[in-house]
Amino acid sequence: MKARLKFDKQRTAEPIISTVVLKTKALINILKAEVDESAGEVLIEVPDDKAESTIAAFKQEGVAVQVGGFIEISRQRCIDCGHCITLCPVQAISAEEDLTVKIDQDRCINCGACVDCCPTRAISMLQ
């Protein structure tokens, strides 16, 4: 399972992830991390069997947790050209039998490589 953690300003200096790892013994994999003075955002991968306890532990630490649904393709704007498929580093985007482009939210690592390649600006990253 992948989850996005949002830390507020006061908490970015604290070792929250380590605390949660020690507590849950979940082998958390950090896929992406952006931290500055105003806030921190970290994308993590957690083994499915530890998902529930890990989310609960982060929430207990006061961290906002978002699970899945990071990238959205507007069906109204998408023309199913497939350009984004070639840019996805983790093969999360594919075309169905009838050529409809779809995204696998579980595979997506929220990197955003597909966003600026879309010629009809159909892809957006949820903030």
Binding site: I79, D80, C81, G82, H83, C84, I85, T86, A95, D98, L99, T100, P119
Partner: peptide
């Protein structure tokens, strides 16, 4: 086909036009 071979590599290829809408 979505894949094109170039020397010893296979690279992903896609259209910028839409085959679905062309159909």
């Amino acid at each position: 086909s979505g894949k094109i071979t170039l020397k010893d590599r296979t690279i992903p290829v896609a259209a910028l036009s839409s085959l679905k809408l062309a159909r």
